Amino acid sequence: MATKTSETNTATTTPEKKITVGNASVNEKEMKDSSLHQFFVSALKDIYFAENAIIDALEKMQEAATTEELKDAFEDHQLQTKKHVSRLEKVFKLIDEKPEKKECEAIKGIIKEGEEIIKSTKDGSMTRDAALIIAAQKVEHYEIATYGGLAQLAITMGHDKAADLLEKTLEEEEDTDYTLTEIAETYINFDAEQED
């Protein structure tokens, strides 16, 4: 879907940018004032907070994990999450907004649940690793839902470059979810079932 930007002169001879999305054309100020744009920015701030919180949570999960495969997966995803934060900062810049965090109650709850899992499972057990994978996948599913929705909103509003960045992160979150499932099925779940 092509997005065109044009300038028209107003009575005060101030250039006014027009954004064309599909067959519709709106000026940039109207787009920024729209409730959809405001929701989009608010949701970006929410996931920006979440990604930063996830970086710290992944470090705790890596330390608590038993198997090297899971420790490595958490370490890899922590590095990837740092890239996601940087990518979100680019999205903010593309839509001419300042990167800001908005406290995300959903991710705080999911992270708290992960911390409870660490406290309530035996250190060094496969059961803990199985539980950590489920906790991590809850994080991934939250991110997948968020990035999928944000990418579609970006497309709807004609923010094509931002949409591309959001879709790239979405694909990486889906890949991480798949990797966690593979680790669970290959290394952890059967051994956890054998534990006393």
Rank of each mutant, 00 (worst) to 15 (best):
M1K: 12
A2Y: 13
A2I: 13
K4V: 13
E7M: 12
T8G: 00
N9S: 12
T12W: 09
T12H: 10
T13E: 15
T13W: 11
T13L: 11
T14V: 15
P15E: 08
E16N: 14
I19D: 01
I19S: 07
T20S: 15
T20C: 09
V21Q: 06
G22V: 12
N23E: 15
S25C: 12
K29G: 04
M31G: 09
M31Y: 13
K32A: 06
K32D: 03
K32F: 08
D33T: 12
L36R: 07
Q38H: 05
F39E: 15
F40P: 04
S42A: 14
A43P: 01
A43Q: 12
I47C: 00
I47Q: 05
Y48C: 08
Y48S: 10
A50M: 02
A53P: 00
I54R: 01
I55P: 06
D56P: 00
D56R: 11
D56I: 10
A57K: 05
A57Y: 03
M61Q: 12
A65I: 09
T67L: 03
T67P: 01
T67S: 12
E68L: 07
E69V: 08
E69Q: 14
L70I: 11
L70S: 09
D72K: 12
E75Y: 12
E75Q: 10
D76I: 08
D76Y: 12
H77F: 08
Q78P: 06
L79A: 15
L79I: 14
K83C: 08
H84M: 01
H84K: 01
H84T: 09
R87K: 11
L88Y: 08
E89F: 08
K90M: 08
V91T: 05
V91D: 02
L94A: 08
L94W: 06
L94T: 04
D96R: 06
K98W: 01
P99T: 10
P99G: 11
E100I: 06
E100C: 07
K101F: 04
E105P: 04
A106I: 07
G109P: 07
G109C: 07
I111A: 03
I118R: 03
K119I: 10
T121L: 06
T121C: 05
T121A: 05
T121I: 10
K122P: 02
S125P: 09
M126I: 05
M126P: 00
T127W: 07
A130Q: 00
A131W: 04
I133W: 00
I134D: 05
A136I: 06
A136G: 14
K138I: 04
K138L: 06
V139I: 13
Y142L: 03
I144F: 00
A145C: 02
A145N: 03
A145Y: 02
T146I: 04
Y147G: 03
G148K: 02
L150E: 08
L153V: 14
I155R: 14
T156G: 03
M157V: 09
M157H: 05
H159M: 13
H159L: 10
K161N: 12
A163C: 01
D164W: 04
E167L: 07
K168H: 10
K168T: 15
T169Q: 00
E171D: 14
E172K: 02
E173F: 03
T176M: 04
T176R: 00
T176H: 00
T176P: 01
L180S: 02
L180M: 07
T181H: 00
T181E: 02
E185C: 00
Y187S: 12
D191K: 15
D191W: 11
A192C: 05
E193A: 15
E193Q: 11
Q194H: 10
Q194I: 13
